[in-house]
């Protein structure tokens, strides 16, 4: 059987699970959870370095960017300018061209501002970035992003960090039907079975942070997500049975005594 991999821009990922690196107790736990998840790619944020405490550990000491793909994000950016500034800095840091764009529009829901998101995608693609784009589950905007050259569409399942799971399967399915680039569900997944549901719908991958980092045992939850994503993918590839309104016996009628 052909190896089932996920191709995003020019990267080939063995795992369809991408994990975030925020909210962990410490870097040791982050590294252990990432390892248990089996992910090839992790999202990272860009912030000011602590100049007063030179001995403070930093992320790159625990997760080697040469061994795992760093996906710089623009978390916390509320307009196009901030997002572009952040990603240009990320590119300068180490040649990262594959990035995750998120332009937030509202502090309470952290829903993306899709007008600014489309605008930013256009500029970034022009500048040579490969952009994976966090977006609402609106098929029309997803199409616009793809038309602007997005490398992956990343619709939310529900608000970031909410753990509410996949709330609009129909919209995600519509996005899947129309997209030629990978569709990776980002944000809102609460537990392993939510990821399975997304994968069974045919999503190309899922991005998880809070559901792992906020679990009582993040390392075990990372492993649960690894298995859940594999199961969901296999289930999608295998093709589920038809749903029927009435029972159909599993044992043959012939030879009943």
């Amino acid at each position: 059987m052909k190896k089932d991999t996920l191709k995003v821009a020019n990267k080939i990922l063995k795992s369809r699970l991408i994990v975030g690196t925020g909210k962990y107790k410490n870097f040791k736990e982050t590294a252990e959870a990432v390892k248990a998840s089996g992910a090839d790619m992790v999202t990272v944020a860009i912030r000011r370095i602590n100049i007063t405490d030179k001995k403070k550990p930093i992320l790159t000491d625990y997760l080697n960017p040469k061994k795992i793909i760093y996906l710089p994000n623009t978390a916390g950016c509320f307009n196009s300018e901030e997002a572009l500034r952040t990603l240009r800095l990320a590119r300068e840091m180490g040649g990262w061209k594959l990035v995750k764009l998120e332009v937030l529009g509202d502090k309470k829901t952290l829903f993306p501002d899709m007008v600014e998101t489309v605008k930013s995608t256009k500029i970034l693609v022009k500048e040579g970035f490969k952009v994976m784009v966090y977006c609402t589950d609106d098929p029309l905007f997803a199409k616009k992003l793809e038309d602007q050259g997005a490398s992956a569409i990343m619709p939310l399942a529900s608000p970031i960090g909410s753990g509410l799971g996949l709330q609009n399967k129909i919209n995600i399915s519509l996005i899947l039907k129309q997209s030629k680039v990978p569709v990776i569900v980002d944000a809102g997944i609460g537990t392993a079975s939510d990821a399975t549901i997304a994968m069974e719908l045919g999503c190309d991958g899922v991005l998880i942070n809070s559901a792992i980092a906020n679990a009582k045992n993040p390392v075990l939850m990372a492993k649960a997500f690894k298995d859940a994503v594999i199961s969901g993918r296999n289930s999608y590839l295998a093709g589920r049975m038809q749903k029927n309104y009435f029972a159909i016996p599993s044992s043959p009628k012939k030879g009943i005594i």
């Binding site: 690196t21 925020g22 999202t43 944020a45 000011r48 100049i51 992320l59 760093y70 990320a90 840091m93």
Partner: peptide, 10 residues
Amino acid sequence: IEIVHFIGGG
């Protein structure tokens, strides 16, 4: 002057 680096993020 701003000096930035990568930190954990989702």
